[in-house]
Design a protein around this nucleic acid. Structure first.
Lengths: 199, 199
DNA sequence: GTCTATACTGAGATAGAC
DNA sequence: GTCTATCTCAGTATAGAC
């Protein structure tokens, strides 16, 4: 077992547990047990609990960046890309019902804790917002792009929160359908308008 | 200082602190300090921390019930009642920016903790949903009343979450305006087109 | 790099004096 | 009803053996 392997396994386990139990509620012992190392060994890799949180956030940021880049490369149409984002709610519905949105619940918890890493965690939202904003711009909604991005993320947060609290899959599916309709209404309205106006 | 007074003050302080810091993060010492009693005295009134949580939830349920009943009595039109509900986001925007939605953040935390009182806390949402559902029924949307109620609550949750995480008042205000427009579109009968309010 | 042993802290909770 | 003193336990963290 090399150093890197163990460190990676710690971050992976911490990521899972922070999502499932919350950051505050997850102890070193929980993580050590999950990775099957001693608590002492733990401190060789991370000095403090905050360090692990930072590593988890960094990993999530990198993963998110990869996903968004892949969507950019593999999906040509911006509307289809946004649809892909919306459908994550369906793909992850089992986890969302159990634990809520991994980004939203972490950011909310850190906000309440007034935690120093709140800014870094918020970057997860910011990265998504910026990416969505680009897609809406490509859709021809440049002026409102950022507002539309925030609106969509907010809708997703509300859906995840209630799907979690009420453990309601039916609600989640129906709301996702409404989001699809909403996106559709934004996609078709620009049919006859020219992309750029002279002057 | 009578028994009732102290108990009430404990519940009041706990309510505040649970909202501002979260349930798990709030210690007996925090509450005792806020009420300015000793920790020992504390246990005369509540045997366990869970007991305080239960008392806080009961108080919130009673308060919510009072508010909804008052709205029923004082506001004749169901659309105006729903508008009143939406405008709570504006009235409480300062608190929401700092701490999120008091109901949503508590229910989310308890869900993650798998806490026994989760069911009671969810009753806060359920009570609101039932009341909204009644209002939408009165508006003539009986078949969809429950779905509309859930949709509205979800929208509110998303708005509160992002307003909190991003500490963004502008976003909150704009989204509330969209909710007003959404309500308006549901209110208008079969006559003329609704006039959109200037932004 | 990994382990055991242990120090230190804060939190929940109890006992008993007043 | 309120207090002080104290207990227990979990969690963070360190030291040092291997």
């Amino acid at each position: 077992m090399t150093d890197k392997d163990t460190r990676e396994r710690i971050v992976e386990a911490a990521d899972q547990l922070f999502y499932q139990q919350g950051y505050e509620q997850t102890s070193f012992s929980d993580i050590a047990d999950a990775v099957q190392i001693s608590r002492g060994n733990f401190y060789y890799h991370f000095k403090t609990k905050d360090d692990i949180l930072q590593a988890v956030i960094d990993t999530r940021l990198a993963t998110l960046q990869q996903i968004l880049t892949r969507w950019d490369e593999e999906i040509p149409q911006p509307a289809e890309r946004i649809l892909q984002y919306i459908d994550v709610l369906i793909t992850n519905q089992a986890n969302i019902k159990h634990y809520g949105c991994p980004v939203g619940t972490l950011c909310s918890e850190l906000a309440k804790l007034r935690h120093a890493s709140q800014v870094e965690a918020n970057a997860l939202f910011a990265m998504t917002r910026n990416w969505l904003s680009e897609q809406f711009t490509l859709l021809g909604h440049k002026a409102k792009a950022n507002n539309l991005a925030m609106h969509l993320i907010g809708r997703g947060q509300g859906i995840a929160t209630l799907a979690n609290v009420f453990y309601d899959e039916q609600f989640l599916k129906q709301e996702v359908q409404e989001l699809r309709d909403w996106l559709q209404s934004l996609t078709v309205t620009k049919k006859t308008k020219p992309k750029k106006r002279p002057g």
